[in-house]
Write a protein that binds this DNA or RNA. Structure first.
Lengths: 255, 255
DNA sequence: AAGTGGTCTAGACCACCCC
DNA sequence: GGGTGGTCTAGACCACTTA
């Protein structure tokens, strides 16, 4: 609808907000791309025209376009216009701190878990330092075998202060999503520092994942932080080498 | 100057731009933090007050603040104010991966290379598609064993269109840095898509790295892009599993 | 109720690209 | 020169926090 611009379609943006206008604009443009109306490489209508079509101001539109640049969906060229990014990758990964369940959903697979451990224990000195808490603080240990369509993919060992969400001890994590439960408790992960390495599987890992001992596994240790860079929890995920790939993207400092 | 706000200091922002006002504001606030005038955890003056101090509009100020949020320098809290992020680490990366040379520098080790291959060959169909070029276009193949203090750490296989920097064929890469040469030729990498996986070493890799066959290795394949998302080159790096860790950080999509 | 960030607008001028 | 993105402004109203 954006590209044809016959001029008479209903704007589809409601000023009496359920959501901010610029987010509605983001979703609307994303929709045009996902539905194939806007194809990779195509030029968008000029900003001023989009403004009248969407019935929003140029500042608001540009906030939406900026978000889509961050997500690598669009790019701009000064005197020329806005273009849909050619990368076929573009639609998949905004920039992932994606939970296992979210990944599964995106790939249209069924995620399930076997809980190996789900109990509270006092924080050791090392754990306390890593999480900026007092030693002895109750720490919830959650260890799960993560499966996609029942195939074991990874072992996830997460440790987090019980104070973040005290009801975790009563949760059945063979079905529940940790990130969902945390969200319900008002915990909002924003970033994670990660260290990634390749190792050979030891006996315990080999058994849990159903691979040979010494088979290559990918191990990622994460420290997850909130928007103010306060540590939330640590997580150590071991992936069967031949069953998973991490995807990410890097960028150099923007001006 | 920002925090004391006696009201009589010169704005230090010049409207007759060498740089956009919002970038000047970013640098000015960064400076206050780096110089210790603003310390981690401190609250900034209200936006409207900063506007009059810096003599810029609120929209412009907020663009600067938004950039500083991206860089993890500041964070906001709705009815409360703007705060300097606590993490001292955060100054560098927007979203980055530590490069081989950077790792060497951090560990105070010496980086060196053995060139396995440095020659031009016509692009295959697959390569052409990946790089959005015509099949048969001359492609420069650079394969190196990367060492730290003479210990082999990784094999780096990079393929790039010779047109990017024709003098690459005459360069001695046992010493030279590829990124430096590209920068000299005006090539500016902006982002990279990466896929990371764990594998077992095959015979060639095992020999080059001096590890057992089937030993775990970390393989990272990158597609490096410029600011407009045009593909520049592809790079495939295989690390000996017990000799290297990748460090990165993720962030969750901002709303 | 006062203070503060979050969103939004209408209009202006500049810099770049292409004809 | 005409079209397009990039920057900037002054002012308005809303939502959240704190007292």
């Amino acid at each position: 609808m954006l590209v044809t611009g016959t001029g008479e379609t209903v704007p589809a943006i409601r000023p009496d907000y359920p959501e901010p206008l610029w987010i509605q604009a983001v979703n609307l443009i994303r929709g045009e791309i996902d539905s194939g109306v806007l194809k990779p490489g195509m030029r968008l209508p000029p900003e001023r025209e989009l403004c009248t079509q969407l019935n929003i101001s140029r500042v608001t539109l540009r906030k939406a376009l900026g978000k889509l640049v961050d997500d690598r969906v669009l790019s701009s060229s000064h005197g020329r216009g806005w273009y849909v990014s050619s990368a076929s990758v573009g639609k998949e990964w905004p920039n992932s701190l994606e939970s296992f369940s979210e990944t599964a959903a995106r790939m249209a697979l069924t995620a399930s878990s076997t809980v190996l451990r789900a109990q509270s224990a006092p924080a050791t000195l090392d754990e306390a330092e890593e999480l900026s808490i007092a030693p002895g603080t109750p720490l919830f240990h959650l260890e799960r075998i993560r499966r996609l369509n029942d195939v074991p993919i990874a072992i996830d060992a997460t440790r987090l202060p019980l104070s973040l969400a005290p009801d975790l001890v009563d949760t059945d994590f063979s079905e529940a999503s940790l990130y969902e439960r945390l969200a319900a408790a008002g915990v909002q992960p924003a970033r994670a520092d990660a260290i990634i390495e390749a190792r050979g599987a030891d006996a315990a890992i080999a058994k849990a994942l159903g691979v040979e001992v010494a088979a290559p596994v990918l191990m990622m240790r994460q420290l997850v932080l909130d928007a103010d860079d306060r540590p939330l929890f640590v997580s150590s995920i071991t992936y069967a080498g031949d069953r998973y790939r991490l995807r990410t993207y890097f960028s150099r400092s923007r001006s």
